[in-house]
Design a protein around this nucleic acid. Sequence first.
DNA 1: TTATATACTGTAAAAATATACAGTATAAAT
DNA 2: ATTTATACTGTATATTTTTACAGTATATAA
Lengths: 205, 205
Amino acid sequence: MKELTKQQSKVLACVEVYLNKTGFPPTRAEICKELGFKSPNAAEMHLRALEKKGYISIQSGSSRGISIVKSQQSFEKNGAQMPVIGLVAAGSPTLAEENIEKRIPCDPSMFSDSFDYFLKVKGLSMIDAGIHEDDLVAIKKTTDVKNGDLVVVRLEDEVTLKYFKKNNHNLELIPANKDFSTIEVDLREQEAFVEGKSVGLIRTH
Amino acid sequence: MKELTKQQSKVLACVEVYLNKTGFPPTRAEICKELGFKSPNAAEMHLRALEKKGYISIQSGSSRGISIVKSQQSFEKNGAQMPVIGLVAAGSPTLAEENIEKRIPCDPSMFSDSFDYFLKVKGLSMIDAGIHEDDLVAIKKTTDVKNGDLVVVRLEDEVTLKYFKKNNHNLELIPANKDFSTIEVDLREQEAFVEGKSVGLIRTH
DNA sequence: TTATATACTGTAAAAATATACAGTATAAAT
DNA sequence: ATTTATACTGTATATTTTTACAGTATATAA
């Protein structure tokens, strides 16, 4: 495959980003706007070059008739890359780039319910539920949880993975290990934030 | 999610097929041609209905500005669908269609090593390794296994998932549950076929 | 010095496209 | 008997979009 010039590479990336974001390809004018060109012909020329080099194909006469033949990066591959977040002691498990340990190629719909990220398990508090240290628990971001759900809860600056049980203002976070004790929270005295619930688990052997 | 009428369903399928084939969405006129309508307004009305019901979104004023919000089938998935095979008592876990319980959308490279299928775990013999009944163990087809690997072995017509340990002609298949005992095989007297080894595990909560 | 390739601006026209409006037809519901 | 929902045809137009053409500028190679 022929090498791309710096500008051609930018244009290809622009098309891929647009496609990812909207689900359909950009027009010449939209590429121009994104990359700061002032003439649609600038985009046109780069697209023609990309077509000649085999990276895209252009359906002549069709609006937005661009399709990616060969993605320049592993970018927008086949499947999604789901982020893995460490169970950090301080703060909530956010999807900010600096908290992402790595990404795993898999489909967000691989479990019965969709999920948003993997949480890497620390400690042995859920071992009797077959959840080991370094297992990756698939978390769906939601506050809609029921008693008995395996949930991610933030208490102060501590994030924990436990079974959920709530009666009025009394919240119990129940471990699955007899050496650990249930965390009891009186919601009138302390706040607790439900970050999400587990919909599945994966482990690498 | 609201139900679709027969025609709306056809139009949505048409959009998905077109998108799969070309990489960009169809115009109203193209939908008409595909489905035999004679007025672009026919397509327009169906698209509006699909938008109202939440199946697609339409970027107003943009040509081909259709994006799929909720695919009607699991159709047009990009990623692979990995087969799940039950740990059948008789015969080896083959990939023949009749043995496949279902398929899970995920990437064969999601674990450190690639795998070929999921094996659905029966029984509690590996529970101390955190492997529960109905967990899906990702199996890589190989005979290249080392002592300590978690392997799928076939003895006669029995298939089992155990830890592997071999010294000369003495093979031990070790469970992870003190209520089960190690299976010892003298390879001079009985054959044992290594079907593959586990590279990971997934569980749906 | 003269090409040659890259990288654009600026304009304009033809073609593609979305989309509104005015109808028609049919089956089911009220 | 009349409304309501679905499912279209047919036409027209404003807008979007592609795409050709005529230039400009700069760096590199011959």
